[in-house]
């Protein structure tokens, strides 16, 4: 029997998959930032706002930034996933606002994931 925590984790994963599937239809890139309590303790709000700042200042269109529940173990928080239209999401960990700048430039704009920050 699954615990409530397990069910919540499955629900968050399914929510991400549904949103990513919908993105494939409308051509949007989707950024998810994990906002579990552990993520918050490690600066997830700053990371979320860094994505907003970078995408806004570069005037990039068709990007949706959302919060989601915890995306990984606390050792790799803050965690975010970037899903280009029709592509599998790439998960990044131990994020900082500076790393977010690199990810937006290289992955969201350039289409190439920043492998140095990718986590499982």
């Amino acid at each position: 029997m699954k615990s409530i925590a397990d069910i919540n984790a499955i629900r968050e994963q399914m929510r991400s998959k549904v949103l990513i599937r919908d993105n494939a239809k409308d051509g949007e890139t989707h950024v998810f930032v994990g906002m579990g309590t552990s993520g918050l303790e490690h600066g997830a709000v700053e990371v979320f706002n860094a994505f907003v700042d970078e995408i806004s200042s570069r005037c990039i269109k068709n990007v949706r930034i959302s919060r989601t529940g915890s995306l990984g173990k606390s050792e790799i928080e803050p965690v975010a996933e970037v899903a280009l239209p029709g592509e599998a999401p790439v998960r990044y960990g131990n994020l900082t606002p500076d790393k977010v700048k690199e990810i937006v430039e290289n992955h969201v704009v350039g289409g190439k994931p920043v492998s140095a920050y990718v986590v499982k």
């Binding site: 709000v45 706002n49 907003v52 949706r64 959302s66 919060r67």
Partner: peptide, 14 residues
């Protein structure tokens, strides 16, 4: 306090 506007933005899609 941190920034309340930054915190509320997290729930934009909701």
């Amino acid at each position: 306090m941190g920034k309340i506007g930054d915190a509320l933005l997290v729930f934009w899609q909701e």
